[in-house]
């Protein structure tokens, strides 16, 4: 049995064929030793790939593909990196399965990368484009958290418009040790450059302000 229901597949098929423009390349770093949901992630990616031929999926074994992992700065697995048609990196990452509410973020990302259209306001874009230092945004989530996609998609959009920014979703059950290290007991929790942290699905402006604070 698949992970996606037939009616959802049908809906996404129509949505993709209407909206997708350029190809989207999804790179999945799997891990056979220590991965709770790798099988499900692979299944999910395969099912999504089947929905439209503009979606490409490549899988690497994290432990045997150090060069590929280093190329995208992937520190751990399971991890998903999202690339544009020309193979350039968007800085969009999923550490752990993009399922539950995060599946909608994953779909929004595919559409954004394919069409080049984000949903940020002009003012946010103006501020974010000025950033010249590397920015690492970690967003801890659980798949049952309805507010989390808002925070993850904001981080992903910021990464999309500025190549200095990496926006990473961390599924807290897959990455329990990391969640503990960062003292995560409530989600969404966003951590910018390991220095600025905040909780909740905050409005765009507040999110941007926190990110700017971290690069000051």
């Amino acid at each position: 049995m698949g992970l996606l229901e037939d009616k959802d597949k049908q809906f996404l098929k129509e949505k993709f064929s209407k909206e997708l423009d350029k190809k989207v390349k999804i790179v999945f770093f799997s891990n056979e030793l220590n991965c709770q949901y790798c099988k499900e992630i692979k299944m999910l990616l395969d099912e999504v790939k089947e929905l439209d031929d503009k979606i490409e999926v490549t899988e690497f074994n994290f432990h045997n593909s150090k060069d590929e992992a280093a190329k995208y700065g992937i520190e751990d697995s399971p991890a998903i990196a999202m690339l544009k048609e020309d193979g350039s990196d968007t800085g969009i990452r999923f550490y752990g399965i993009p399922s539950g509410y995060e599946f909608s973020t994953f779909i929004e990302d595919i559409i954004m990368i394919s069409t080049g259209k984000h949903q940020l306001s002009d003012k946010a874009v103006e501020e974010i484009k000025k950033i010249e230092k590397p920015v690492d945004i970690k967003v801890f989530v659980t798949p049952t958290c309805p507010y989390c996609p808002k925070a993850v998609f904001l981080a992903h959009q910021l990464a999309f418009i500025n190549k200095n920014i990496t926006g990473k979703m961390y599924e807290s059950m897959e990455y329990q040790e990391l969640a503990q290290k960062y003292n995560v007991y409530g989600v969404p929790k966003s951590i910018v450059n390991d220095s600025v942290e905040f909780e909740g699905a905050v409005p765009e402006k507040v999110y941007v302000k926190h990110v700017l604070e971290a690069v000051k």
Binding site: T142, Y147, C148, V184, Y185, G186
Partner: peptide, 12 residues
């Protein structure tokens, strides 16, 4: 450890 949303945070 103090939370307002069980659907979000109960997994912890």
């Amino acid at each position: 450890g103090v939370a307002f949303c069980a659907t979000c945070d109960a997994p912890f």
